[in-house]
Design a binder for these strands. Structure first.
Lengths: 164, 164
DNA sequence: ATAAGTTACGTTATAATATAACATTATGCC
DNA sequence: GGCATAATGTTATATTATAACGTAACTTAT
């Protein structure tokens, strides 16, 4: 899974990545503190790895990052999956279903709904931020109680179309 | 994966299942014929299994069904995955990403877009039929060229809410 | 402060899902 | 028939995920 590729695509072209990361991390800490929930070191490590990458990562890729650290090596899959489960529950992280991968949430607050544009060219993923879609409204009207909803739109971003 | 559970939920309550199946199968045959594409026996077998179930099935579950047939047993995963790939491409089958499972399409024709209501209670899945969502329009307007889009709304159907 | 209860983490093994690579058979076309 | 292509078959293995059980850390009540 290439992670440092052609940075030429999708919504987050010009932004201060370090600042964005640290803001999201602070927000996560505050969220957990306010809810009296423990953002432990492990959980924070996993969140940081995802926020740094800013792109979807597989669980084993995250695991690799954790084990890159020479001290405290040899971490096993369940640890990553448990941290992810925690972060997903809080909406700090989303799962990109069509890639079996995970990505840090850029708009914490909408835990139960997310929409993504997924470029097949540069493999970048942009999170959109629509509070509620017409489909969700429709579902509710039919009496379906929504727990979680996912929209994944795959295709080619403008840049990648141009580069063909 | 329970497949014959509490049939009490979601959109397709009252319908003639056998008829629905055979209609979809005919439609598939016609589609392939008109496009001069081969709906081989294997591919048709897989399609039939999915249409019969009318619910999402894992690839290995399908495999199990194929191997249930005493003659011509011992079929291996790639065969199923290849048939699925073919059927997905044509939009005769959809992939339920959040379950890593596959389901026969009930509205062939919209190959590149599908929406599902997925009940956590009875595990049934209903396919909706909205041609285009506002999100897709939005994506297009941003210059994103959509290849495929997936909407998966998970929750509790009306029946399952009542049965709590 | 300590014992009891709970939550998080660590570890081992294994299950479930998916694909790579290559051999064989069938089909379409000249 | 002979050739090219497409589909299937086969073996092995990669990738993703979880079960089950043990240990450590934190929380709370006494």
């Amino acid at each position: 899974m290439p992670s440092s590729k052609t940075k030429h695509c999708l919504a987050f072209e010009h932004h201060d990545h370090r600042r964005c990361q640290s803001q999201l991390l602070s927000a996560a800490r505050e969220l957990c503190h306010s809810r009296n929930i423990r953002l432990t070191e492990r959980r924070e490590q996993v969140l940081q790895i995802l926020l740094q990458s800013h792109q979807p990562m597989g669980a084993y890729e995250i695991l690799g990052q954790l084990n890159r650290n020479p001290e405290a090596s040899n971490i096993a899959p369940p640890i990553v999956y448990r941290a992810l489960e925690f972060l997903l529950e809080l909406g700090l992280v989303h799962r990109i279903e069509c890639k079996n991968a995970f990505i840090g949430c850029v708009h914490p607050g909408h835990a139960s709904t997310a929409q993504f544009l997924i470029c097949k060219g540069c493999e970048k993923v942009a999170e959109l931020d629509n509070p509620t879609t017409s489909l969700q409204q429709e579902a509710s009207q039919v009496g379906f109680m929504i727990d979680h909803s996912v929209v994944e739109i795959t295709g080619l971003c403008a840049e990648c179309q141009a580069n063909d």
